[in-house]
Simulated scan of single mutants.
Amino acid sequence: MSTTSSTYTYASLLCAPEDLDDLLKWLNDHSQSSVLIEEGDPSRLVFVPPDTASAEWLLMESALISLGATAIDLQSARQEDWQEIWKEQGFKSFTVGERLRVVPSWEDPEDRPALETVRIDPQMAFGTGLHETTFRCLEQIVETAGQWPKEPRSILDFGSGTGILGVAALTIMKEATLIAIDNDPYAVEATRHNLRVNGMEDRGLVYGAFEEITPATPLPTFDMILANVTGGILCSTTPMLYEMLSPKGRMICSGVSKEETDTVARVLSGLSGRMRNVPGERYDTFVIDKGRSPS
């Protein structure tokens, strides 16, 4: 990752809408950076590249062009300037149902006592609620808080990005604690930062890998697992994640493109419990309730 003092190099690529999913999947599979997505015609992806003087970057650039990137620009920004970048992307306050609202850290929220407030400073990580996968997960968190027989007390946010999902869950579920995992160092810092922004630093721990939690000892179990990643990652990690889900826990999975839906559904249907698909416009979200018979 290219860094000088507090200045970061980021890559911005343009592509046709029909190439967006392939490019995003490739970046998720081959880059440790979170990816900012701006859908449109053309669509735009923004991410932090490896050292731009390295062979790794040259190979990455060539692969992205072969997958449909029509232009790739390298730009520099100070970490504090990312707020302006997110403002340009249209990140502003929004509500999720009648229970929750998400507010950028630079905005003053309106006085609406009926709504719980989550404040988010994205920095250089993925997850503001602008993308449909994040929003669908937020909807399911709100639904769980309103309908689940017993409020979750332990939560895992796998692939936390900004930490928006874990922080939202802690905001609604007052007695819960959180473990967040992300292999992107910027996401780890963003999640820790957003826990502090919301006064929750004593309720959440953030790691870059499971091995950092309890080396050589069994992993903890969780009442709720949030995994907004990709279909490929879900297929490879779900068996491990499901073992960590408590006997009557709920797992919310998203980031599944329409092309991946059937494959992911086959993997998830092999788990014991009740699974349902919450279809979106371009991505699907799955909810699995452990300890419940398939409907």
Rank of each mutant, 00 (worst) to 15 (best):
V142A: 13
W82M: 05
Y8C: 07
E281N: 10
D51P: 04
I72N: 05
K87I: 03
L14W: 12
L20V: 02
V229Y: 05
T9K: 12
K150M: 06
I225T: 00
E211P: 03
S105E: 15
D202T: 15
E259I: 05
M1C: 07
P17M: 05
E260V: 04
V256D: 04
A53Y: 06
E56N: 01
P218Y: 02
G291K: 02
L178K: 09
K87D: 01
S43R: 13
P42T: 13
T52P: 07
P104T: 01
A216K: 12
E88W: 11
L130A: 10
V103Q: 03
Q32D: 14
I85F: 15
M200A: 04
E56R: 04
L178S: 11
S93C: 10
A16D: 14
Q32L: 15
F222W: 01
T52E: 06
R99P: 03
I155H: 11
W86P: 07
S269C: 04
R282M: 07
F158E: 13
D182I: 06
I172W: 06
L165M: 07
G68N: 11
I155Q: 10
E38M: 00
R276W: 08
P247W: 09
M1P: 08
S257G: 12
L156R: 00
L226W: 07
V264W: 11
G232P: 12
G204F: 11
D73L: 02
Q123Y: 03
I155D: 11
I72H: 02
P17I: 00
A227T: 01
A145F: 06
A209D: 15
S76D: 15
L64P: 00
L241K: 05
D51L: 08
S93I: 08
F91N: 15
R196A: 05
A265L: 14
L24T: 12
A11I: 13
N198R: 13
C253L: 14
D223T: 12
G204D: 06
E211D: 05
R266N: 06
S246K: 06
A265T: 15
M244S: 13
E18I: 09
A145R: 05
L138N: 00
T191A: 15
N228C: 09
E110I: 07
M244N: 13
E212Y: 10
E143Y: 14
H30S: 12
L245S: 12
I141M: 01
S293C: 12
S293G: 10
D111C: 00
A176K: 02
L13G: 14
W148H: 11
E175M: 01
G270A: 00
G232R: 14
N183S: 09
D202S: 14
N183D: 13
I172R: 14
V264N: 04
L59M: 04
G231N: 02
M124D: 02
L74F: 01
E61C: 03
E201L: 03
S257W: 05
G40P: 06
S295P: 13
V188D: 05
L100V: 10
G231Q: 02
R282A: 09
M251N: 08
D41N: 15
